[in-house]
């Protein structure tokens, strides 16, 4: 038992040290680029000329987005990128960044506020995502908790379940058997939520990032326009089918059309 205990302690310490060393090394590089991005954002805010201001915010947005793509982005980082895009008047990219922030933290207040504002800048006829249904109300946590949160809850619930079961089995504490049921139910719920939110569904949501994108009736540049106006950047849609040059998409009001593949970006990469 002594040996077992010593091995466990060594393993735990080794893992902790390795993770912290790796994280701190990665952190150093990312922090440097983030400082540059933050400085660019500050410079942009102090610019008075409109064109220079736009250019500076675009630069800051690109830097924030680069950092977010390269490392382990947080919702705050995507919100920073979204704010920079919004101030450079790129509504499409701003909406995309806020959507990515909310993907990581659905309760992020600033992201929620700013995406609502960005959506309000779109023409009124652009369809928006519908309100939540009864099931969404019941399973609110499924929507309000981020994927990472649910993964963490699932891991903790699993550990608690194992602790209770181990106590009941190894130390003959029969009361722990009943207690183990609670974290087990939590674990099953969290895992079920993660499974229901399949990869396919998550990976099909997209945002138009190129202004004046014409949706067509088929996957050809010569096909008739599907709608009477071009779709502005920031239009949110669902990808139905991807082909070489065109993608079949569905808007929030169930209308569909074909748009160039280069005109949108998926919310989840």
């Amino acid at each position: 038992m002594k040996i077992l205990r010593r091995t466990l302690v060594c393993l735990a310490i080794g893992t902790f040290v390795a993770v912290n060393i790796g994280a701190s090394r990665a952190h150093a590089g990312e922090a440097e680029s983030l400082v540059t991005a933050i400085e660019a954002y500050s410079d942009a805010q102090s610019a008075t000329d409109r064109d220079a201001r736009n250019r500076a915010f675009t630069r800051a947005a690109v830097l924030f987005e680069g950092a977010a793509t390269d490392g382990h982005a947080t919702a705050d980082l995507w919100v920073n990128a979204g704010n920079a895009w919004l101030q450079s008047q790129s509504i499409g990219r701003a909406v995309l960044a806020y959507r990515r922030a909310l993907e990581l933290n659905p309760r992020h207040a600033r992201a929620d506020q700013n995406i609502a504002h960005a959506r309000s800048l779109l023409p009124s006829w652009v369809p928006r995502k519908g309100s939540s249904g009864v099931l969404d109300t019941f399973f609110f946590w499924h929507r309000t908790l981020s994927r990472n949160d649910r993964q963490a809850i699932a891991a903790l619930a699993f550990l608690l379940t194992c602790l209770a079961v181990a106590g009941a089995v190894g130390w003959r504490r029969s009361a722990l058997r009943g207690i183990a049921i609670v974290p087990l139910i939590v674990w099953i719920g969290a895992m079920g939520s993660l499974l229901v939110e399949s990869d396919t569904a998550r990976r099909s949501e997209a945002v138009i990032v190129v202004d004046e994108t014409i949706a067509r009736a088929s996957d050809s540049i010569n096909a008739a326009a599907r709608f009477n106006a071009a779709l502005p950047g920031g239009t949110e849609l669902v990808v139905l089918e991807e082909r070489v040059y065109f993608t079949h998409v569905r808007l929030a009001n169930e209308r569909d059309g074909w748009i160039p593949r280069s005109s949108y970006e998926l919310v989840t990469k």
């Binding site: 952190h27 382990h72 309000s120």
Partner: peptide, 30 residues
């Protein structure tokens, strides 16, 4: 229609402050 019906570009409804702490911006693989 496309440009005319677009609302004017304003930023009054947005909170445009950014998080300036690099540690808070980067998640960890831990």
């Amino acid at each position: 229609t496309p440009s005319a019906r677009r609302p004017s570009f304003t930023l009054t409804g947005a909170d445009l402050a950014i998080e300036t702490d690099p540690d808070a911006l980067v998640g960890s693989s831990a």
